[in-house]
Write a protein that binds this DNA or RNA. Structure first.
Lengths: 211, 211
DNA sequence: TTCCAAATGGACATCATGGTCCACTTTTAG
DNA sequence: CTAAAAGTGGACCATGATGTCCATTTGGAA
């Protein structure tokens, strides 16, 4: 069994464009289903149906369901991190940070708070079951936090925040507030608690603003 | 099929002490398994084994697995709310609130952050699948938040916090920070992010302290 | 003591789901 | 053009989980 493993989670020796196209269709469909139904509640038949593929294709492209899960974690992580990176890179003021908040809250409210955070949900569902998933998701959360810390560090260097501000702690707290907001919003089917949670974190960060 | 439904989730007409004893043994075992393995990953055979009962007893006491899940939600909710009520009722100072924080963090660190919040975990796993579970868990979160709000209101009335403090918003934010902390801690297998998240919320609350 | 409902144990039926296989088609390299 | 490799479809198998049944035991009230 020669495992090329160029693309994470793939059992490939060589792949054609068409095959890669099919593969990504499968992953996209699975990602979507995992997001709205949960990983465990999604069957491979669901994935097959949603992606217009067949059983053998799933097993051609993925060792087993777990490999598919890992691929989905991979793609969701990349998606979330790219989005956050893009949104936060240019933030240079506190109101820039608030606009970041607004975008998250708005996206969440468009779906009535449902489904929560793609990474957080998978994390809770998988981290006690599959160590590899946990590691991957943990790495993504670390990266996410790093982006936040970089942003806050920049704000401090620009003099928006005072020297007292600890970007590391503030970044962790901000991410915790965000994740907790997702949990409460998902449960309440209402994005309000997420908005309140984030606002509290931002207010706290604002308390370090250079007057 | 006469459904007595005195005890939530039970298909009972009449029950003897022995039966009730068995029932609660089942629920306790299930609650524990759901907590450490997740609801979906726990089979009825696991429950049967852990509770030293047999298949027919499960179905004698519960309509189906979902009914058992509802019973577990019920008992976990009562447990968490009783604990929180008991711990927060007597809090009359900010350092009292910090002791509440310490207790949560310590309990979490004893299990290396794993498993997260019993209610939060079930919430994420079930809220997209079963509406009744979502409602029940949402009610519990509401009650939890109410306890926090009452505590903060008390602190304000006692003059510990200024009139500017908005117990409602602070309570929601505090709960969000807690839940988010659980998520990050579970994933990192480390209670540190939970401590940081809670500290940020408490610092923010502290900023409303009457000087 | 007797009787009956409740409680119990465990075998068994059923079914969904993950996973396999193989015949057939498409693509691509020589 | 052709042959081999990659991709595809869907029937099929195996497993394990949920849920059923029934014979037997237990416990308490008349």
């Amino acid at each position: 069994m020669p495992e090329g493993d160029t693309v994470s989670g793939t059992t490939a020796t060589r792949r054609t464009p068409r095959g890669l196209e099919t593969r990504s269709r499968i992953v996209e469909s699975a990602a979507n289903l995992f997001y709205v139904k949960g990983v465990n509640a999604t069957t491979l038949d669901d994935v097959r149906l949603a992606s217009s593929t067949s059983k053998s294709q799933l097993y051609n492209h993925f060792e087993d369901k777990l490999a598919l899960i890992h691929a989905v974690i991979d793609v969701q992580s990349k998606f979330v991190l790219a989005r956050e990176e893009q949104r936060l890179r240019s933030v240079k003021t506190l109101s820039g940070l608030r606009r970041w908040r607004d975008a998250l809250v708005q996206a969440n409210s468009l779906q009535d708070g449902s489904y929560g955070c793609a990474l957080g949900a998978m994390s809770i569902e998988l981290s006690d079951t599959d160590e590899q998933s946990r590691r991957a998701l943990n790495a993504s959360f670390d990266a996410w936090q790093r982006i936040l810390v970089e942003t806050l560090t920049r704000l401090r260097e620009l003099g928006v925040l005072t020297e007292d501000a600890d970007p590391q702690r503030l970044g962790t707290g901000l991410l915790a507030a965000l994740q907790g907001g997702y949990v409460l919003a998902q449960n309440a089917h209402n994005s309000e608690p997420m908005a309140v949670g984030l606002d509290m974190a931002l207010d706290h960060i604002g308390s370090f603003a250079r007057s």
